[in-house]
Design a binder for these strands. Structure first.
Length: 267
DNA sequence: AGCTCACCCTGGACGC
DNA sequence: TGCGTCCAGGGTGAGC
């Protein structure tokens, strides 16, 4: 499940594509293309000028008016392959570069996709703040939760407010902050908002340091697994003892998403 | 406007 | 072994 730390890790491992010339674009599944503001063929022969992450999106900037946006959905993998790409299942998109390198996008579940975007600012207009910047702090998080009846867990997953947090890091951040996922967002105290704002940054940075969480599908741009799964405190640890107090971790579905927490440490 | 929920999709786990 | 069923969830959009 690629969330911010996973996409950031992929971005870092794909850095070598910047400055490369695009030789050919192969779309193996038409419906994997979610948007086509310009013809993909126009990218062939052009040089990739930049690569960056926004929330859980990855952007290849060929020029300011021609961007290639990737989203990995649940099971997406994007990696650089040297030599002819493998004839594996579920490869929907290949970007061939000069020097016999191929950027391969594989996604069994096809929740991911690619967008050929001209106006990148408009494309991201609906997206919330980047949690690892100063845009997220006690004051801004306080504004987001004020008066909101949704659970704090649901609020953290809302990409229009904060972008990049998914199910794993939401559960981990709430454990870190000592707040139950089913608490109404509007009921958080000033101190809890401060703790949560810091906890979000802490767990996301830890995830990046560990090169992401590989539960099953996730791989980075070099097709390597992450290691944050070994450091998870609550996610996927139902009925296992809490690392802090020993009580058993509970699992509850909140808004259709499984949520993991310690009912003794999280209030 | 705020919120909930069904939907999309496939592979793996599990029960019989 | 094999078959059927359920589950995982990011983002979108319908409907209340």
């Amino acid at each position: 499940m690629p969330e911010l730390p996973e996409v950031e890790t992929i971005k870092r491992t794909l850095e070598p594509v910047v400055g490369s010339t695009i030789k050919k674009i192969r779309i193996l599944r038409e419906d994997f293309v979610r948007r086509m503001d310009y013809s993909p063929v126009q990218l062939e022969g052009q040089v990739i000028q930049g690569l960056y992450r926004r929330g859980k999106f990855l952007v290849l900037e060929v020029n300011p008016g021609q961007n290639l946006v990737l989203h990995l959905g649940m099971t997406g993998r994007v990696y650089l392959y040297r030599g002819e790409p493998p004839a594996e299942k579920h490869i929907h998109f290949i970007l061939s570069l000069k020097g016999e390198r191929h950027l391969v996008f594989q996604d069994p579940r096809r929740f991911g996709g690619v967008w050929f975007v001209c106006d990148i600012t408009a494309f991201f207009a609906h997206l919330g703040c980047e949690p690892l910047t100063r845009e997220l702090n006690t004051r801004t998080l306080g504004k987001m939760v004020r008066g909101r009846k949704v659970s704090i867990k649901t609020l953290l997953l809302n990409q229009a407010l904060i972008c990049g947090i998914g199910n794993i890091y939401a559960d981990e951040a709430l454990f870190h902050a000592g707040i139950r996922p089913d608490r109404g967002a509007g009921t958080l105290s000033e101190d809890e908002i401060r703790r949560l704002s810091r906890a979000i940054k802490t767990v996301l940075w830890q995830g990046i340091e560990q090169r992401g969480t590989t539960f099953r599908d996730y791989r980075d741009g070099e097709n390597q697994m992450g290691s944050f799964q070994h450091h998870l405190q609550v996610y996927g640890r139902e009925k296992q003892p809490c690392s802090r107090c020993g009580a058993l971790i509970e699992r509850r579905v909140i808004n259709g998403r499984s949520s993991h927490f310690c009912s003794r440490c999280q209030l």
